[in-house]
Design a protein around this nucleic acid. Sequence first.
RNA 1: GCGCCCAUAGCUCAGUUGGAUAGAGCAGCGGACUUCUAAUCCGCAGGUCGUAGGUUCGAAUCCUACUGGGCGUACCA
Length: 677
Amino acid sequence: MMILDRLKRRFVAALVSAFEPSGRPVESSSGPQADSWAAEVESYASMVRPTADVRFGDYQSNCAMPLAKRLGRSPREVAQQLVDALQLDDLCHPPEIAGPGFINLRLKDECLAAAVAAALADERLGIEPVAEPLTVLVDYSSPNVAKPMHVGHIRSTVIGDALARTFRFLGHHVITDNHLGDWGTQFGMVIYGFKHFGDEVALSSRPVDELSRLYRLVNRLIGYHAAVQDQGAAVMAAEAAEQAVARAEEVVATAADPKSVKSAGKDLAAATRKRLAARQRVDELGSTIAAADADPIFLDQARAHREIAAAVLAETAKLHEGDAENVALWERFLPYCRDEIDRVYERLGVSFDYTLGESFYHEMLGGVVERLRQAGLASDSEGAVCVFLPGFDSPMIVRKKDGAYLYATTDLATLFYRQQEFRPDEILYVVDSRQGEHFQKLFAVAERLGFTDARLVHVHFGTVLGDDGRPFKTRSGTSVGLESLLDEAVAKALAVVCDPQRGGRVEGAMDEPEQRQVAESVGLGAIKYADLAHHRTSDYRFDLDKMVSLDGNTSAYIQYAYARARGIMLKGDIDPDQVARDQHPPLLTEPAERALAIVLLRMGESLQQVRADYAPNFLVDYLYDAAKAYAVFNDHCPVLKAGSVEATRSRLVLVALTARVLETGLSLLGIRVVPRM
RNA sequence: GCGCCCAUAGCUCAGUUGGAUAGAGCAGCGGACUUCUAAUCCGCAGGUCGUAGGUUCGAAUCCUACUGGGCGUACCA
């Protein structure tokens, strides 16, 4: 069992024996009061945590202060009583009480050494599976398949994959489902595009490129017409903003008392910001139109397809109604799209138990609307079928006035299906924060329909930003293709691998296939690691150079630590499995040895944090700590040249466990290791 | 207007149900390669945790107001 859990268990025992009122009648011990005391004990016991500072020992308990308040006694007195009741002799040195009532614990070296040996011998590194496994359905990645994958798909794919792997490792029954956008408006776009601009030959020879060309062309045409239509209003808005600034300036100039000066200044700042936004909008539309004007072929196409936006929606509606031609086209296009994304997933090492896209639920959508009507939730409004919910300004629209369904409808159908098919205890939607309101509505409707068995969680994440702090886009304003990004990262990693400056470091030259393999693992690892290293809810700046720079907190640092550990075992012709089987407790005489040992025993703690917050960055932080501890150990403690057989044997245990911990941890993040780099 | 998220070192970010002197990386400065891999290590410097109140023995963390930013807000997903 993990050390922290063992400590907590001892605290439970001590709390019960030291503080439970003894005179209480037996029959009340199963009543609500006893339950609440039991819950309190759990809560107090859980206040054991790693110390912030090594001077305070290895772990500390902070429960004496709140407990003292609860009992109306002095914290240090309560702490003393708790310490007297604690049975920790086998694990720790005598606890010390410090400050207002902190209880500091220092683990005995023998205990650490035994735990290290046991962890190394254990398939699961001493991390027990959860006592009560849950069925957890993870919905992630979910790209729209008619267009190329772009940088925006990284987060859902990488975070979802890491969560699924981690929860599975913890012993939960995990079901992964890629809810593809394979039935939406983007297919209407491609269908319209193919009917009017399609190239049969290109579709046969390079289907993915052709579909992508059609998507981009139709998208551009729609954007152009929208720009033309919006330009007048945008210019007027910009003029209005201009006047507002002028008025605000006047108010500032004539403001008399300090209070109105301040408020006028605020108004002016706000007006100036609005003016900037309005000008940018005009510029944007202007450059869209200017680009079209400079492109006579495009302009002809645009003139010939003035109603393209409506026509695309009509094609989509026809597809949904079962129009033979459109369905045939969809059936023809879809496999190409699937091949395309499968190639990316294979490269990323991501796989799914199910890939049930939106099209899978199409037949059920009418039933969903009917069910909502019968439940009295849905009503007609402005030609659409809507669910109005208290607390929301806008309704959840489940059927458009043209008869087409929306993703709200599909998401409800998906929820019904999953409930019936998988009986999950938890469903995680690893989706962009911007869809927060959609999920709030979805969950509210689910609750009103009586779907309360599964815990529904929107595992939201922030936006990937460029170095200008705005959503990551190319200079021309389109989103950055995912594959070119991966290629770029791998190329940068390859440059380092092949760097002649460090050619002599690795024993035995790498041949080209090995170099490429290392670069692939390091390059892809860099992108995944950088994403997972940030807390999922924050936006982060995508900086490829930093990710692949290989300095500091990067995947390469962890991978390198692993490779060094492997290198030692390789050099010494050591079989790691044999080291594990020996179950030899290491000597922990050097500070670097002890520090490494204790961090190696803490991976389970980080996994529990990942689980509690659905946040893989806790595991990333942990692995970085572990790799740092190993780097220090590596510098201070020679292994093969330790000077004695005993010392070498002892340190090999730490080296072998380091390699296992880093490899396992990285694998839970979906990052591969290489034996040398 | 309403709703959600955010504000921590020059930059990018962590900070575990409120805990001891707020951490890391990068950038900067100074050291360590006849080495089990220097893709490394050691040291120095850098902070009124947006502002003002409140709750508490204790607040970056919880509450309120304010300031500044991002996103969403009726038929895209």
